[in-house]
Design a protein around this nucleic acid. Structure first.
Lengths: 341, 341
DNA sequence: CTGAAAGCGCTTACAG
DNA sequence: CTGAAAGCGCTTACAG
């Protein structure tokens, strides 16, 4: 490339000042007189000068980058619209700051820690967003241990009071959804969740159980079904539920794609929703709206989660803040699958 | 953070060699004897040394970062599954290299050029991936002008032979799809496209026209409908088509979400697909598979486009390569909407 | 208000 | 095969 970028020194020479002065003009240091400031700025424009971010970083000990750690690509979880949506929020909010975004490129599960270490020890980022958390999360432990600025999207399994995170109140969302199903007449409610190591799964199970208890329904172990975030899980458990001797008349599903799979099975078997069984799900994806039977789903506002995480992180980078929690409201979007009027 | 990272000098002191030698060990310079190499490596591990990427960049004139320029967040186009999918491919392929990914954070349309300039002139990236192109694209012109390494996902409007890009053969895809509709008996085929400034729109229109010509059908201007990539466009044109005096019996739509909107309108009006009108679309999204009437759609393989773009870019950064084109195969996924057996 | 000098943590010709 | 020195392009205490 024919760039031949100009340096600070070039500007200094042209303006007849020292490099220190030019540097101070860039930093908009108030000690520099308006007069020289103007002259220098003019010279910068004249030769098309642009500060070298790398050199600034080295001298500054500040990179201007935020690292985003996503679950790895192969992972089915990446296919979940949650991540693109949250990322969209992250990008959006970052555009209001002077940070750039550095994306993790971990290809394998379990590689997250290595990536985090590389970014931090190589001084490539000033802060980190963790886009998922699990039980005994080694990334969280590491970041916490070295006291590096980071924000978790979701909730940590332990040390909640010490870790900065942005999340929905998943416990309450599941509680409310379960309660709602009971209110519209469901007596026996099954629950299909994700990986039990995921904190979000745990929280929703808790809410589900609490609602059952509050509404004087018995919790039954065989109505608690755990699987992955894909359609297959829906097929499998849809079948299982349909074949239960005393079939449930209510169902909570932790993800729309799974719920969609369940509905397909039910449709094939002639099971009517919501008449025979009411259904509530999570994520409010395009599928929940456009399914042959549009179904009730909890909008978790992933875009907002992303935005808020960056907003918090920029503060965390500046001051040290610990254990800050930002709760993003959810909303139960009621549709045909729970409409028993 | 309590980091206090160790430096090259620390390692050198401990190993009893000069910093130059340690540096050469890091670079795995063959001139260093195996013996010292081993000793130095041991010392690095002992004190937990990790090279500072920023300092390396400054000395090296190499950042190890690739910049990704996406359409801006607000843009409806970002909601299209194409971008997350392509990004997934980009992430995946990058994980096999030693590059990191720097994401553009442009919030407004038209800000792309400023972002590109900032990344390049601030020396934050070694190369750039452009995720969309339009007519008179100023980013392309700038990058080309300063001869900065970049790869375009999609095709440029002009100077095709001079710009490295990765794309489907959209002209042929539209050609084949149109021809297929004619072969299953469609006589009059309408086309719903996207923004006419987008190169992909132009290419598909060309293919559509060529197929009509080859199959001795007349091209009619009022059957060529252009809009945005959203459901509303589908509603609007679905209605329009339904109300044409001599309604078309075939329809090509440039995006699944739009096609989905059209189908909804048709369903509401009692228009039968594929009996009354056959439909073929693009992107093979989850909607095309799960729509009440699953519809034929062209799989463009966005994941592969992403992967190939990184693959090409890493080569472009090393040698100078110009006007290289990599074509990613598409595949027409035939479903009920064109099944007239 | 401005400048000379040292430093950020590396790399790399040059010399031996 | 290894080292001393200069340099990458900035910033910032220190001095004036």
């Amino acid at each position: 490339m024919k760039g031949n970028s100009k340096t600070l020194a070039d500007v200094a020479k042209l303006a007849g000042v020292s490099p220190s002065t030019v540097s101070r003009v860039i930093a908009d240091n108030p000690k520099i007189s308006e007069k020289t400031k103007k002259r220098v700025v003019k010279c910068m424009e004249e030769i098309g000068y642009y500060p070298n971010a790398i050199a600034q970083s080295l001298a500054n000990k500040r990179t201007g980058n935020i690292g985003i750690i996503m679950p790895h690509t192969e992972d089915e979880i990446f296919l979940n619209p949650f991540f693109p949506e949250a990322l969209r929020g992250i990008v959006k909010e970052t555009s209001n700051t002077d940070y750039d975004l550095l994306l993790s490129t971990n290809a394998k599960t379990g590689e997250e820690l290595a990536i985090v270490k590389k970014l931090i020890r190589g001084s490539k980022v000033d802060g980190i967003i963790l886009m998922s958390s699990k039980q005994d999360d080694e990334c969280i432990n590491y970041l916490k241990d070295i006291e590096f600025p980071f924000v978790l999207i979701g909730s940590p399994y332990e040390m909640e009071g010490e870790i900065n995170h942005v999340d929905n109140d998943n416990e309450n969302a599941a509680y409310e959804l379960t309660k709602y199903l009971i209110e519209i007449g469901s007596e026996k409610i099954a629950f299909i969740g994700g990986d039990e190591k995921l904190v979000v799964t745990k929280k929703r199970i808790e809410g589900y159980k609490r609602a059952l208890k509050d509404m004087d329904k018995e919790f039954k172990d065989d109505l608690l079904l755990l699987g992955s975030f894909n359609e297959k899980t829906g097929f499998k458990y849809g079948d299982k539920i349909a074949n239960m001797s005393d079939m449930p008349d209510g169902l909570i599903v932790t993800d729309d794609l799974v719920a969609f799979g369940v509905l397909k099975v039910f449709e094939g078997l002639g099971i009517k929703v919501p008449e025979d069984i009411a259904l509530g799900s999570f994520n409010n994806s395009i599928l929940s709206q456009h399914s042959p039977i549009p179904f009730t789903s909890v909008e978790i506002n992933a875009f907002e989660l992303g935005k808020k995480s960056i907003n918090l992180l920029t503060k965390v980078i500046e001051k040290d803040i610990h254990g800050q929690l930002i709760t993003v409201p959810y909303k139960i979007m009621k549709r045909d699958s729970t409409d028993r009027r």
